[in-house]
Design a protein around this nucleic acid. Structure first.
Lengths: 147, 147
DNA sequence: CTCCATAGTGAATTTGAATTTCATTATCAT
DNA sequence: ATGATAATGAAATTCAAATTCACTATGGAG
């Protein structure tokens, strides 16, 4: 974690940036917070520690982390931007439309089929997004009972 | 096309709705316009024919079509909502990050793997979204030349 | 160490797509 | 025809996100 912060600071310096306490706090909170956190979540968490950190700094820092490749921007269509660490291995999402629960999965066979498809279309893929929407186990059961 | 409009009007009537000229124009323009049109695109196209149609009507009509299942809402992460007809068979998207070109593909093997994954997680899928981002053939070639 | 150019900051403002409001108009069952 | 109600368009509102701006902090040059 400390070495991670150091590495990030080096990269920031490399592109002509300076350090700051606020930004360090945002970065630390981000990596400590669970995945799929909204900007609002992150801002809350940061400000819980240090009330003086402004929303703008949270937004700017997350954008910076995304640019450096440490964070990934997510959008599950609810109008809120979410971020997750890009350090963990790649995965896709199952989003419950009822309770909002987001779970993750990996399926290498899907990945390789995507590569194939892209190649067939002369397309050079840099990333992809696969989100499956529906009802989680809990909500599916609850839904059945209602009928 | 005419029979489609009639069918839609029947469904609207069934949920207690009335007809209107503006709405009919929006619907017609939507089905005549290429896929992945933004709301702005649609509004422009409609207002080109009939300047008196307001943006709100375009927005409301597209939401209605989505609710009835005739239109699908898309979001490629550029902050603009797009719509495509839901009459064509299901497909996923290849989005060029350089020129914005969107092309479509179908891959039944991916679909079935998704079903499998969902089942394994006790998840009841209602829909999914798979977008592959990268460079289209044109832009990939152009990018190489630059280096 | 001391400058000082410049990056970063937070509060406040602005942006911009999308939605809602509201007074008016159009539709349609009776 | 009439009256209940859906639909309309212009304008106002919403809301997350981005930007502005006056001020502060950082860190390389000397």
């Amino acid at each position: 974690m400390d070495s991670l912060l150091k590495r990030i600071n080096l990269e920031i310096a490399a592109i002509g940036g300076k350090r700051s306490r606020s930004r360090a706090q945002v970065i630390e909170v981000f990596f400590r917070t669970g995945p799929h956190a909204t900007l609002e979540d992150l801002a809350q968490a940061v400000r819980k520690r240090n009330r003086t950190v402004g929303y703008a700094t949270v937004y700017r820092t997350m954008k910076l982390l995304a640019k450096l490749g440490y964070a990934k921007e997510l959008d599950f269509g609810d109008g809120l931007k979410r971020y997750e660490s890009n350090l963990e291995s790649h995965h896709d999402h199952l989003v419950c439309q009822e309770c909002g629960l987001v779970s993750e999965f990996q399926e290498p066979r899907i990945e390789s089929l995507q590569e194939q498809v892209a190649k067939q279309h002369g397309f050079l893929p840099t990333m992809h997004r696969l989100d499956i929407y529906g009802l989680c186990r809990q909500c599916a059961v609850a839904g059945k009972k209602e009928n």
